[in-house]
Amino acid sequence: MTTRTITLANRDGATYEVDGRQPLLKSLMDQSVDLPYGCEYGGCITCAGKLIEGEVNQAPQVALNNRQINNGYIILCVARPLTDCVLEVGVDSHDKLYRNPFLDPLEPHELKADIAAPAPITETPK
């Protein structure tokens, strides 16, 4: 097994050794971390956490729009760690997850992946 070390920044920096092939939600709950969840297939956003450092594969998720992904959110019930990671978990990591859709609309490239426009090309400073 490929072991990764997961640090929970908003749980006093507690660390857990997990199997890189397992979704993070399962690995952490198996080690008695109390986490919110709902559908467990990556569609309902209940289990969202924030990736502070590291890399995950969360290809099966369909809950997040590109704005949320750019803000670092990951869907723990399907995300598998590719490296050691530092995370914030639970509802107290959701400060940027929810926004009033009338006051703060999404740009076309910030929608969910299946309907998003390509990201605008930003000029790279010479």
Binding site: G43, A63, N65, P101, P105, L106, L111, I115
Partner: peptide, 9 residues
């Protein structure tokens, strides 16, 4: 709808 309401959708 479960993750929230994106008006654009």
């Amino acid at each position: 709808f479960m993750p929230g309401f994106d008006l654009e959708e």
